[in-house]
Structures are given as C-alpha cells and as structure tokens.
Amino acid sequence: MRAFRRSLPMALLKAREAVMARFRPLLHEHDLTEQQWRVLRALTTADEFRAGELARVSSISMPSLSRILRTLEKRGLIQRGIEDKDLRAAQISITPSGRDMIALIAPHSERRYAEITAAFGADRLATLYGLLDELADCLGGSDGGDEEE
C-alpha cells in the first residue's frame, strides 16, 4: 500500500482544507455554509436550474441539496418555480437578495483568491486548474463547466 502522504484523496483533501481555511471565516461572517455558497455561486451561472442539475454542478447530494434549498429559500436568497413542461420539476433561481449577497461577498472572496495566487503563483495555479480538470475528465467526474471562479 502506498504511503499515506501519497494517498491522492488525502492530498486533495489537505489542499482543499488549506484553501477553504481562507474562505470559511468570510462565509461564516455572512451565516453561510460552504455548500450554501456553492449553490448560490452555481445559480449565478444560469437563469435557473432543475434540482438534479444544480446538485451535479455544485457537487452536492440531492438529500443535502434539498435541505440547503429550504434554508436558502427561507432566507429569501433563492426561489423555486414550476417548470412549464413538467409540473413536478422545480426550477431554482437566485433572487435579487441572493445576488446582493454574492455582490457583498465577492470582493472579499477575490482578495482571498489574490492572496492564494500571490502565494502559489499565477502560472502554477493555472497549471493546477488544468491538471485538476484533466484528472476529473479522465476519471469521468467533470461537470462540463469551464467557467473561471
């Protein structure tokens, strides 16, 4: 068995935790979890999403997404509508209040990205993004998105 420090899942988790340590305090200041933020961010990329698609692009399980959507809806940050073609399917979109929340947090988030870029290097970060996308693609885990975060 390979050395624990060379376990790919652990290396990815360690890097994720190092990155998220920069963002968590900002999200907590606005009473948001990481998953809630991912949902809000995903909702800024399209006019609306069906729940299954939103779960896929935000990498959140459907049961967790259901709880997150209830919370965000109660806070007035998202809204659910009925799809014309399938009355059972809800269409989820971000509200003006949700967009205001994004606008409030975005400059602070961008400062964190700038700090990470300065520490790691812009070229190395671009290479890392590319390698992570390639890894996800070759293992069948790509969401198909190429939007810059």
Rank of each mutant, 00 (worst) to 15 (best):
T71H: 07
A118T: 07
T44G: 08
G144L: 05
P25M: 06
E83P: 03
L12E: 15
L128T: 08
T127Y: 11
A46T: 08
P63V: 10
E29P: 01
E148D: 12
G121I: 04
G145L: 08
I105F: 04
I82D: 04
C138K: 12
A90L: 11
A103R: 15
T127R: 07
H28K: 15
D146Q: 15
F49N: 01
L26T: 03
E34C: 05
H108V: 01
E48F: 15
L27I: 05
E134W: 09
D31L: 10
L104V: 04
A114N: 04
F120G: 00
L32F: 01
A122Y: 10
L139W: 13
T127D: 14
S93H: 06
A42N: 03
A106S: 13
R50Y: 14
Q35C: 05
G145H: 13
L132G: 02
L13Q: 15
S64H: 13
D84N: 04
R111M: 06
Y129I: 13
G130M: 00
A51G: 03
M10Y: 15
P96F: 08
D137Y: 09
S61G: 10
R124T: 13
D86P: 02
G98Y: 00
L139T: 12
V19S: 02
L104M: 03
A103Y: 06
A51L: 12
Q36F: 04
R50G: 07
A55R: 04
R16H: 15
E110L: 15
I60P: 00
T71P: 00
L128V: 11
L65Q: 05
A3F: 07
Y129S: 08
L12Y: 06
L13T: 14
A51E: 05
R88Q: 01
R75A: 14
L128N: 04
F49Q: 00
R24W: 01
R80C: 08
A51K: 03
V57Q: 14
A122G: 04
R22E: 07
A122F: 00
M20R: 12
M1H: 10
G76I: 14
R2M: 15
L69G: 00
L139G: 02
R124M: 11
L132S: 06
Q91D: 09
M101I: 02
G81T: 11
